[in-house]
């Protein structure tokens, strides 16, 4: 299906969106909003076609297509989710400069994906494949919400700073209301915590099934737990305070989550997490038998 569609196609569309957004204060472009929405839709269509093509590729190990088979696919799907969110937010109000904050995150994810294009695919073990997909998808969703939380958090802080200093929105640079940004921040915090919880649990099952034990004190698992703990703490704080923490503190929490996510991603990507060469002689729980019971 349209096999000529490459990363460059949608990357270019997103870059154009970013440039058009960034040029609001510099030049007046007639039909700017139409261009923004048009380029976002075009980028998403190309992005979707690219993903369909990717998922149609047969995995050499199993002889059939695999979803989220490697880090490259994982990051490109994450970027797709963010692009979809950006389109929805832009359609909601094209005059708000949402793309200016979300598109850079999309570009970063695509960039990271490109760097990892030649990395080893994830191992395929039929018995635990369901848990692997749950684990991968949960972390993907969690990552997307953390990225969105980061974008909303920064937008909140910028908007808050402007209003504190009596600098109102202009035609060139308009942000959503503080209330909307705060509610999106809260939604991102809660959603990321839930997704990360599912990701963590499925990861535990995955490890038990694959290796028979969980290396709780290995660096990547520790820091992964740290990320979940951070998202959970932020969510609990929000729930307990019933939103009275103040929008700024919620924004700081969302940004802190993103920073921890970046650390985790960095460690996970340079470590052997998810790769097939992890053979350990360490004693642990007999996870394989537990998993067999769970999945029977």
């Amino acid at each position: 299906m349209l096999s000529g569609v490459s990363v460059t196609c949608f990357l270019f569309s997103y870059l154009v969106v970013l440039v058009v957004e960034a040029s609001r204060s510099l030049i007046k472009i007639p039909g700017r909003n139409l261009i923004l929405i048009g380029m976002l839709v075009a980028g998403l269509i190309a992005h979707s076609i690219f993903l369909v093509n990717q998922f149609s590729l047969e995995d050499a190990q199993v002889g059939r297509p695999q979803l989220l088979a490697n880090w490259f696919q994982w990051t490109v799907v994450g970027a797709w989710g963010l692009a979809l969110a950006c389109l929805i937010l832009t359609l909601r109000d094209p005059n708000r400069s949402t793309g200016l904050f979300v598109i850079p995150l999309i570009l970063v994810l695509i960039g990271v994906g490109q760097l990892l294009r030649d990395s080893e695919p994830f191992p395929v073990e039929t018995t635990i494949n369901v848990w692997r997909v749950i684990h991968g998808v949960s972390w993907l969703v969690g990552t997307m919400f953390i990225c969105l939380g980061m974008a909303f958090g920064i937008m909140y802080l910028v908007q808050s700073y402007r209003l504190k200093n009596k600098r109102r929105s202009s035609e060139h640079f308009k942000l959503s209301t503080l209330e909307f940004l705060q509610s999106m921040n809260r939604l991102s915090l809660f959603s990321s915590a839930v997704a990360l919880a599912v990701g963590l649990l499925s990861g535990i099952v995955l490890n038990l099934g694959r290796e028979g034990y969980v290396s709780w004190f290995s660096g990547d698992i520790l820091i992964t737990c740290g990320l979940f703990a951070s998202a959970l703490t932020a969510s609990v704080l929000e729930i307990v305070s019933r939103g009275s923490l103040g929008g700024r503190r919620s924004a700081y929490l969302a940004i802190a989550n993103f920073v921890i996510l970046m650390l985790v991603m960095g460690i996970v990507l340079v470590s052997s997490h998810g790769q097939p060469d992890r053979v350990s002689n360490r004693p642990g729980l007999n996870g394989a038998s537990i998993l067999r019971e769970v999945t029977a």
Binding site: Q159, L163, R168, S169, T177, L178, E179, F180
Partner: peptide
């Protein structure tokens, strides 16, 4: 219409 609407959706 111009100040409060920068803060509140509704």
């Amino acid at each position: 219409s111009e100040i409060a609407t920068e803060f509140f959706e509704r």
